[in-house]
Simulated assay, not measured.
Amino acid sequence: MADLPEALALDRREGLPEALTVLLSEHPRAGWADDPGFAGLVQFWMERHAMFRELSGMLTAEARAAEAGRLDPARFAARLSRFGGLFVQELHGHHLIEDHQYFPVLTRLEPRLERGFALLDADHHALDPWLARLAERANAAIGAARADQGLGDAAGPLAEDLGAFAGLLERHLTDEEDLVVPVLLRHKGAGLG
């Protein structure tokens, strides 16, 4: 989004502007799970977000433990390879589906929120270099663990980057939920599920 105000950049904003949360007052978070439209697509989508949060937390904790020498290097390398790969691949796939399938449909349903969907798309582009960097850091840590040398030195930068990324990811997921879920509930899934 070329004309994105700096204050709305993913690494700066503290939430969505009020103009983009107009449907949140009609469909507040506290009532989402009780809404008849929650089961199916919305529930699945929220479960995907929960998985990303869980993987992010687990990977960060394990990288910190590896940095401190509290994890077996071989076990750390195997888990990082498996779950780190899953995390990066699933986030990429999730973002592609949203950008090319969900957001265009949701924009047609709620044209007044077009700027919000463009903002979320911009978030995805802002997260891409982070995902590439996390993959590089993870590969370095896996290599160090397998060579049985310098795991703490390689795990430290990975833990630091995972911690920074977690904050960006949480901001994005929360904002995305606050924008998308009310639209899906209002339009009964919009035929996306």
Results as ranks from 00 to 15, higher is better:
M1L: 13
M1P: 08
D3K: 10
D3C: 11
E6K: 11
E6Y: 09
L10N: 01
D11F: 08
R12F: 03
R12I: 00
P17E: 05
L20G: 00
T21C: 11
A33P: 08
A33T: 14
A33D: 13
D34K: 14
P36K: 01
A39D: 07
A39S: 10
G40A: 04
V42C: 05
W45D: 03
M46N: 11
A50Q: 13
F52V: 09
F52M: 10
E54Y: 14
L55Y: 10
L59A: 07
T60I: 09
A66V: 09
A66Q: 04
E67Q: 14
G69R: 07
A74S: 12
A77P: 05
A78P: 09
R82C: 13
G84F: 04
H92F: 15
E98S: 04
H100Q: 15
Q101I: 15
F103D: 03
F103H: 05
T107A: 12
L109Y: 05
E110R: 12
R112L: 11
L113Q: 11
E114I: 08
E114H: 13
G116E: 02
L119T: 02
A122Q: 07
D123C: 00
D128I: 11
D128M: 11
W130N: 02
A135L: 08
A144C: 11
A144P: 03
A145Y: 08
D148Y: 11
D153E: 14
A154Y: 05
A155M: 01
P157F: 05
L158V: 05
L158G: 00
D161S: 15
R171N: 08
H172P: 01
V180C: 03
V181C: 00
L184G: 00
L184P: 01
H187K: 08
L192M: 06
G193Y: 04
